[in-house]
Write a protein that binds this DNA or RNA. Structure first.
Length: 175
DNA sequence: CGGCTGATTCGCT
DNA sequence: GCGAATCAGCCGC
């Protein structure tokens, strides 16, 4: 049975959303879909690794401040589109970064690779996933087992404390 | 308006 | 393991 995520699913504590997104599917209207296997939580103004750190509020990061379920897609290093979805509610600039998933049976580890596999780019920025006809999240009944948790990647610039928060979640890969 | 930087990835050594 | 690719956004002057 398939259930589409609603506003209420996104407007929950960010760590919960990050954990629960594992095993869910990011679905495009054309049928292309990816099962999410790795996420990271970014928790607002106090989190120095978050783009809204210290209350920063610019045009780019505005999606973080919008209702839960708003896509935040930005260009990193001038090359890679990274896909996030806002969480926790309007005016709470928190979000979950999708760092990997499975598309067409193939694993795509890395946030840039995953978005490329799904053909996502800045055109999906600010998309409202609960109501969009182009992009949404589906629960297809997959139970995420063997969930692991650890520090986030690539944010050493935020300092040792924030780099050490165990706010990355992933499904253990068999090999 | 110039300079710097990054929630990454890939290719070469 | 290291550095290049490549550019929008952000900050300081």
């Amino acid at each position: 049975m398939i259930r589409r995520w609603t506003r209420e699913d996104f407007n929950r504590p960010t760590l919960r959303v990050a954990r629960d997104l594992l095993g869910k599917f990011l679905v495009r209207a054309d049928g292309l879909a990816g099962m999410i296997s790795e996420t990271e939580a970014y928790k607002g103004p106090a989190d120095l690794a978050c783009h809204a750190a210290k209350g920063r509020r610019t045009a780019r990061v505005e999606p973080l401040y919008m209702e839960g379920g708003t896509a935040y897609v930005y260009l990193c290093y001038g090359i890679h589109w990274l896909f996030n979805v806002s969480s926790a509610g309007a005016e709470k600039p928190e979000a979950v970064l999708v760092r990997g998933g499975v598309v067409d049976g193939k694993r795509f580890d890395g946030p840039g690779r995953f978005t490329q596999a799904l053909g996502l780019d800045g055109g999906f920025n600010r998309e409202d996933l609960p109501t969009s006809s182009r992009l949404w999240i589906e629960d297809r009944g997959v139970k995420a087992r063997d969930v692991l948790r650890g520090p986030r990647i690539g944010i050493d610039y935020a300092g040792a404390y924030w780099a050490a928060r165990p706010w990355r979640f992933w499904i253990r890969q068999e090999r």
